[in-house]
Measured scan of single mutants.
Amino acid sequence: MEVRTIKVFTTVDNINLHTQVVDMSMTYGQQFGPTYLDGADVTKIKPHNSHEGKTFYVLPNDDTLRVEAFEYYHTTDPSFLGRYMSALNHTKKWKYPQVNGLTSIKWADNNCYLATALLTLQQIELKFNPPALQDAYYRARAGEAANFCALILAYCNKTVGELGDVRETMSYLFQHANLDSCKRVLNVVCKTCGQQQTTLKGVEAVMYMGTLSYEQFKKGVQIPCTCGKQATKYLVQQESPFVMMSAPPAQYELKHGTFTCASEYTGNYQCGHYKHITSKETLYCIDGALLTKSSEYKGPITDVFYKENSYTTTIK
C-alpha cells in the first residue's frame, strides 16, 4: 500500500517557510505537534488534498525554529505562539472599519479597549522592536488589523473576551517599542525636605499616572512627601515624541487643539466601556464603527496623549 502524501510549508514567522512532505494517514499533531492554519487549530486533523502548498504555523520545537521565533517575536515564552494563534482565530472574524481616516474595530468580545489602543497607536510616533509587531502594525494602518490585535493580546497575556485596560495595554506595548531616546527629568520640591531631581528613561519617561493635564504637570502637581507634608512635583525636561497622561476616570474637559487623542471610560472596574476622542479640525468621538463630532467635550476621561518633541522648564 502506497503512502499518500502532500507537500506543505511549516513556519513560526510566515517569513521562513520549511518544506514538509506530510503523510495523509496521520494527523498534523502526530507529525508536527500543535499546528495552526489561519489561526485555526488543526492539530487533530489529517492532511487533505486542499492543504497542498498551504502554510501551517507550528510551535518552535527545534533550534532553527526557536531562533526564527525569537528573532521575529522577541520572546522565548513557549506558550506565546499558541496564544497568538488562538487569538487570531477570533480577531480574523472582527470587522476593521476605516473611521475618520483611522483603522478602528467594530465592537465584539469586549474589544473596546483594543480599538482605543489601536486608534491611539496610529496617532503617536512609535516604532516597535519585534519585527512581528512592526509588520502587523503597518498592515493594521492599511486596514488589516487582525494579526496586530492578536499579537497585542498575546504580548499582554490576554484572551479574547476578557476586559482590558488601555493604560495597561499601552504599557505592555511600550515595553516592546523603541523608547531608548526618551528621557524625563522631574523635580520634587518640599518646604521641609528641599528639592530632589529624578531622571527617568524609556517607558517611565512617557507615562504618568495622577493627572490628565500635561500643562498642569509642567506647572506642578501636589504629591505627598515622605515627611508627610505636601510637596510639588513638576516637569523639568521632556525628550520624547509623545507623552501619555493618565488618571482614574473623572469628568474632564478636553479643549480642541490642546491634545492629540484621549480615552474615555464609562462604567466601573468590573464592567465598563471605552471610547476614543481625537482632536482634528474639530473633536471626534470614535466608538467602534461609530463616529460623532463636537466642538467641545466633557466626560469621564482616563488617558490623554500629547505630541511632544523637546521641553525644558522655565521655572527657576
Rank of each mutant, 00 (worst) to 15 (best):
G29K: 09
M26W: 08
K54F: 13
D13T: 08
T55L: 07
P300V: 15
L291Q: 11
A250Y: 08
V99T: 09
Y234C: 07
D180K: 07
G210M: 01
S50N: 14
V21P: 11
L102H: 07
G288D: 00
N111H: 05
H51K: 04
C182K: 01
C156W: 00
I15T: 12
Q98F: 08
K316C: 15
T260R: 06
G228E: 04
K218G: 02
A115S: 08
D41S: 12
Y284P: 01
S86M: 11
N129M: 08
G257S: 08
D62C: 15
A140M: 13
E308H: 07
N110M: 04
V185M: 06
K229N: 13
N100P: 03
G39M: 09
S310E: 15
N110I: 00
D287I: 03
T159R: 15
L200N: 07
T226A: 13
Y72E: 07
I315K: 15
H176N: 07
H256K: 15
L212I: 09
P224D: 11
Y297C: 04
A145F: 02
I105W: 03
T266G: 09
D77K: 06
P300R: 14
C156R: 05
L118E: 05
L173E: 01
Q30G: 10
G101D: 07
A146C: 08
G288I: 00
E296I: 12
N61F: 14
T64A: 12
C112P: 05
K54V: 11
Y297P: 00
A140W: 01
D13A: 06
V21G: 10
Q20N: 15
T260C: 15
C190W: 02
H48L: 13
T232V: 14
T35M: 15
E125H: 08
R4M: 15
R4E: 10
N14T: 08
K95T: 15
V67K: 10
A115D: 06
V99E: 07
M209V: 13
Y172G: 07
Q216K: 12
E308S: 09
S50P: 07
A231K: 06
Y72A: 12
K127A: 14
A205G: 01
T11I: 06
Y214S: 01
I124A: 02
A247G: 07
I124Y: 05
E168S: 12
P97W: 00
T282E: 13
C156L: 08
S310P: 10
G53T: 11
R139K: 12
E2W: 09
A40M: 15
D180R: 09
Y28E: 00
V3F: 14
S25Q: 13
D13C: 06
